[in-house]
């Protein structure tokens, strides 16, 4: 009888798609129960969505005013307490999951397995190290309690089950600190398709040259209904906000189509796109390392190629 608890990620209104990906990973653990917990001020939206996912046995809501913002210091003690009855506690390897899970694991007195990319058996997992340049297989001892984050780019989102799992509200007896205050979220790229779930992503690098020039990337993305990404160099130079960074320290994504313009292809960038279906690269330097991983490469000036591409795509 093994049980999995998944920490839901949400924005108080809806469920983040990373949660459904954690469910897919959990489904490989051969567990008897997969529960999802939603910590929120008002959990109804996220809980409803989680209850509709296949494999989910039960959704637990923990509603209190303190849970209105995603603070690790507040959520981790509740997760550690609730997790005491489970064999596995999983969360997404998003910035939210990476913030909360290790804190909860340490409170529970156990280590954590980061970025599970494959489950070999319920005790044995693969995870990337060195920016994805090596993959290790790790084994946890029998009966060990496992805290882990799930590399969301490695999993497809669980589908709808067609029938809703029960939603139960719980109160968790954990002392919550007052030392941490949430101030605000300054959101970056607004209402474009979400990078982590977009089927197509168009990205620009330092080669784009300026914030103003980035318009050509946005325009092409709009044409393709794509999300927009960027290299670290483009973010550092202030062309675009940080939440568009793809790579080892940005987002790890797995779109069907990734188009890189003016990106050289540093390993730290490539680690973010290894799971893309097709990588298209346009760079004026024929020796740029991005061409080593590109499925389709074209050497040339992006400022000539993008307009020509838009024309060739027709209406």
């Amino acid at each position: 009888m093994s049980k999995v608890l998944i920490l839901a990620e949400h924005d108080q209104a809806g469920l983040n798609p990373s949660t459904a990906k954690c469910v897919s990973c959990a489904a490989e653990l051969g567990a008897d129960a997969i529960d999802v917990v939603v910590f929120a001020a008002d959990a109804s939206g996220a809980a409803g969505a989680a209850a509709g996912l296949e494999h989910v046995s039960r959704v637990i809501t923990v509603e209190r005013a303190e849970n209105s913002s995603p603070l690790a210091a507040i959520i981790a003690p509740q997760l550690a307490t609730l997790g005491a009855d489970y064999d596995y506690v999983l969360g997404p390897s998003t910035t939210f999951g990476k913030d909360v899970l290790p804190r909860a694991a340490a409170l529970a007195g156990v280590g954590q397995i980061s970025d599970i990319m494959a489950v070999e058996n319920p005790q044995r997992f693969q995870r990337p190290i060195y920016a994805g340049n090596a993959i290790i297989t790790v084994t946890a001892p029998d009966n060990a309690k496992i805290f882990a984050t799930v590399r969301v780019a490695s999993y497809r989102a669980a589908g709808e089950s067609g029938s809703a799992a029960p939603i139960e509200s719980a109160s968790v007896d954990a002392e919550l600190p007052t030392h941490t205050r949430y101030v605000e979220l300054q959101s970056g790229s607004g209402d474009r398709p979400d990078l982590q779930t977009a089927r197509r992503v168009v990205s620009g690098g330092r080669g784009v040259g300026s914030e103003d020039n980035f318009k050509v990337i946005f325009n092409l993305a709009d044409r393709l209904g794509a999300g927009v990404g960027a290299s670290r160099a483009a973010v550092d130079a202030g062309y675009v906000p940080n939440d568009m960074q793809v790579g080892q320290t940005g987002k790890i994504i797995a779109p069907d189509l990734y188009m890189a313009f003016g990106i050289s292809g540093a390993i730290q960038h490539l680690t973010g796109i290894k799971d893309a279906g097709t990588i298209v690269a346009v760079n004026k330097d024929a020796d740029a390392p991005i061409f080593e991983v590109a499925d389709i490469g074209l050497v040339g000036d992006l400022f000539e190629i993008i307009p020509a591409l838009e024309r060739a795509l027709g209406d």
Partner: peptide, 9 residues
């Protein structure tokens, strides 16, 4: 630096 942008705490 969080997935949704910049969060201040």
């Amino acid at each position: 630096e969080v997935d949704a942008g910049l969060e201040v705490i």
